[in-house]
């Protein structure tokens, strides 16, 4: 088992290396003189010269990359032109907000997705199964940001139950925080609930068809017990590790959701930096996201090995 995990960790290195090359190369896409573009509104030749020096734009591209990578590896993701702060500090400050949102979304998605998936598998072929599937497909096809806007219209503008935007930290005011994050978390969760539902359904169908479930039924166990103790236990392990992989979708979704609900997280940081042409921040955010995703993938793989006795060697 350990050699399997060690092998997976070793595989990460080339992937992360290519990720870093890709993200560094984004800079080469900038039209014209990158120093001029990066300076933005600032037309002061001194500032431009400083940028040129800071990013070593006068040197060959591979040399620029090596310097950039050196910084990244020591936790220096560069400097925000606009906010005059280090990119690492900005990312660290915004990350907890998005993590809170993503965790809440994941809980909501698992609650909805797994319940719906189990129900539709148990009631396979019935009207209920059909309805659950249609709702799942509708959920997958609804654009995040539209759902967000519509929910704001309903719950904030019309009913006035919840605030339309803003964010309160749960450490300051727990219920206030829940009030500001429940809608965006639901919007985010909706994006993956449908996917989780489909996976749960097919895993459950497989489990319900298996020999051990037939045996359990033959023993005369109650059907609810068969479903919950025998089928679900086996079906849900891959679904839960799969949840980790859907984390990428959550981070993607957070970009628009945070924008709509004006929540000062990771997603809003990348959008604001795009608008401000703060390219170092964009690169930093993408790099951190990709690394997080790769590591979560690894954790999901390890988790999968741990819960699957056949893979433990």
């Amino acid at each position: 088992m350990f050699s399997l995990i060690a092998k997976r960790i070793l595989q990460l290195i080339p992937t992360l290396f290519v990720v870093s090359v890709l993200i560094f190369s984004l800079q080469q896409l900038l039209p014209g003189d990158p120093a001029l573009v990066m300076a933005g509104e600032e037309k002061d030749p001194e500032v431009i010269e400083q940028i040129r020096k800071q990013y070593r734009l006068d040197q060959p591209i591979p040399v620029q990359y090596v310097y950039w990578l050196k910084g990244v590896l020591t936790g220096n993701l560069g400097e925000s032109m606009r906010l005059k702060a280090s990119v690492s500090d900005l990312v660290l400050a915004k990350l907890p907000v998005t993590l809170q949102l993503a965790s809440m979304a994941m809980i909501i998605a698992l609650l909805i997705g797994v319940t719906a998936g189990v129900v539709s598998a148990v009631k396979r072929g019935t009207k209920l199964d059909y309805i659950v599937n249609v709702i799942g497909l509708i959920g997958i096809s609804t654009p995040n940001f539209w759902l967000g806007i519509m929910l704001i219209f309903l719950f904030a503008v019309n009913l006035g139950w919840l605030p339309a935007s803003g964010y309160v930290s749960p450490f300051e005011d727990f219920w206030g925080s829940m009030k500001t994050t429940i809608l965006p978390a639901f919007v985010l969760g909706n994006a993956i609930a449908g996917v989780l539902m489909r996976h749960t359904r097919s895993a459950m169908l497989q489990a319900l068809d298996s020999d051990y479930v037939r045996t359990a039924r033959a023993k005369g166990l109650l059907e609810t017990k068969v479903v919950i103790k025998h089928a679900m236990r086996n079906a849900l392990t891959p679904v839960i590790t799969l949840g980790a992989l859907e984390f990428g979708t959550l981070l993607s979704g957070a970009v628009l959701t945070e924008q709509i609900f004006t929540i000062p997280g990771f997603g809003k940081l990348i959008v604001d930096s795009v608008f401000n042409r703060d390219y170092a921040v964009v690169q930093g955010v993408v790099l951190v996201t990709a690394t997080t995703y790769v590591l979560l993938n690894l954790l999901a793989d390890i988790g999968y090995v741990l819960v699957n006795p056949r893979l433990r060697g």
Binding site: V18, V19, L22, A290, Y293
Partner: peptide
């Protein structure tokens, strides 16, 4: 590497 970065 490309799939490691969320689509959007």
């Amino acid at each position: 590497a490309m799939l490691a970065v969320p689509f959007l």
